[in-house]
Simulated assay, not measured.
Amino acid sequence: MITTTDKLKVLIASVIAVVVTVGIARFSYTPMIPEMVAGVGLSQTVVGLLATVNYAGYLTGALLISRISDMGLKVRLYQLGLLGAVVTTALMGFTTEAWLWYLLRFASGLSTSTGMLLGAGLLMSWLLKHNQKSELGIFFSGIGLGIVLTAVLAEVIRERFAWDEQWVIYGLAALVLLLPIWRWTPDYRACAMPRKTGDNSESDRSRFIFILQLAYFCAGVGYVVTATFLVAIAESMPALAGRGWQVWLVAGLAATPACWLWDVFTRRWGHWSALYLAYVLNAVSILMLVLDTSLASVMLSSLIYGASFIGIVSMVLAMVGRVYPENPSRPMSRLTFSYGIAQILAPAIVGYLADAEGNYTNGLLMTLVVMALGVVFVAAAHRHQGKAGAPALSG
């Protein structure tokens, strides 16, 4: 029987792991772009390629994790990913060779996938093994905390340290955060669950996952279009010129407690009601950018966006984890891969439309249509849940 203190330590260690592997290993690059451009004359081509190879690493990791079922191997890769997040971040400041940066950012993407997907799956297995609520809202609050940490730390160090020193500082911050992770992470190898059996066939579970995959792809479009162009829209406004990082900070601040609040909402109103609401709110945040680009509207849009996108991530991945309790990382990785494909395609399309038309209006309207389609797929998954063996997904 685990105590409340034991559970709290495991949850804190899991959240900090997300902060390290996602917040620092991935999000630190965003505030570092202008520092590297000013410090070493980094071209926009290299800026874009570094972002691309990082996400390629993340998608590669998601694909590989979807094929792993051995719990011992998962634990070893999870630990390796934590160490990799520290090393690949700090080493960015020790070279000016572009090809080495590409390798480091690719490896950093692999680390992010282990922290997000293996971390979520291992925590889900631990919660199920100890008869705890299989909710991942607290876990995914680490994404919002990571955004906040990198935004605040960037503002603190950018005037005092050179670009290469700043990378090392990010790495040292990640190293310090490893201490409670190593101390409080349980032995996940003892949490392996038996393969689910019953009247529901594997084909029904696979069909349910596929439908959710389509819905999650749509959510990926909604997430990345705002994430990519929100700051650009803000910076184009005289009242927010030079303060785009503050808009992103608002999104992070909203995302941090939102995960826990979505868990509270699902307990009262049901998982599906909460998921419908999250999709609608995400669409509303996009619509606000179309209708009004005033200071108040952009800030409110950022707030709603941060609270809604993280809710979709935490609820959808928790859903598929419950359907596959014997190996939750596998369906989580499948969905994340489709989410990632959306993040590759959508910015290119919206960016092309913006260049051709001189504004983001049609690109944002296209994104709204995709989010509406996402709601349709959520409804289809809702209807199919009983066949998939997911009676716990109420509402």
Rank of each mutant, 00 (worst) to 15 (best):
T3D: 04
T3P: 09
T3N: 06
T5Y: 06
T5E: 13
D6C: 09
D6I: 11
D6F: 11
V10D: 03
S14V: 07
G23Q: 11
A25M: 08
R26F: 04
F27D: 05
F27A: 05
T30H: 02
I33R: 04
M36T: 04
V37M: 13
G39H: 06
V40A: 12
V40I: 14
L42P: 01
L42H: 00
G48A: 12
G48N: 05
L50N: 08
T52S: 15
T52H: 06
T52W: 00
A56S: 08
L59S: 06
G61F: 01
Y78D: 01
Q79M: 11
G81R: 02
L82N: 03
L82G: 07
L82E: 07
G84C: 09
A85D: 05
A90K: 08
L91A: 14
E97K: 09
A98W: 04
Y102K: 09
L103W: 00
F106V: 10
F106I: 09
S108T: 05
L110K: 02
L110H: 03
S113M: 07
L117V: 07
L117K: 02
L117M: 12
G121I: 10
L122V: 08
L122S: 04
L128R: 13
N131K: 15
G144Y: 01
G144R: 04
A151K: 08
L153I: 13
E155N: 13
E155M: 06
E155I: 01
R160I: 05
D164W: 02
E165S: 13
V168A: 12
G171S: 12
L172P: 01
L175S: 13
L177F: 10
L177S: 04
I181E: 01
W182G: 03
R183I: 14
P186Q: 02
D187S: 12
G198V: 09
S201P: 00
S203V: 14
R205F: 06
S206G: 05
L212Q: 04
Q213G: 13
L214E: 01
L214M: 15
G222H: 09
T228R: 02
V231W: 00
V231I: 15
A232R: 13
E235P: 05
W245V: 11
Q246R: 01
L249S: 07
A251E: 02
G252I: 11
L253G: 13
A254E: 06
A255N: 04
W262Q: 11
D263I: 08
V264A: 10
V264I: 12
S273H: 11
A274V: 05
L281A: 13
V284P: 00
S285L: 05
D292N: 15
D292M: 14
S294A: 10
L295T: 13
A296F: 10
I304P: 00
F309V: 14
M319Q: 03
V320P: 02
G321P: 02
Y324V: 14
P325Q: 09
N327T: 10
S333I: 03
T336G: 04
S338T: 14
Y339G: 05
A342P: 03
Q343P: 01
G351D: 02
G351H: 03
L353Q: 10
L353Y: 01
E357Y: 14
Y360L: 09
G363Y: 08
L364D: 07
L364A: 12
M371F: 00
G374A: 07
G374C: 07
G374L: 08
A381P: 08
A381V: 11
G389C: 09
G389K: 03
A392N: 10
A392I: 07
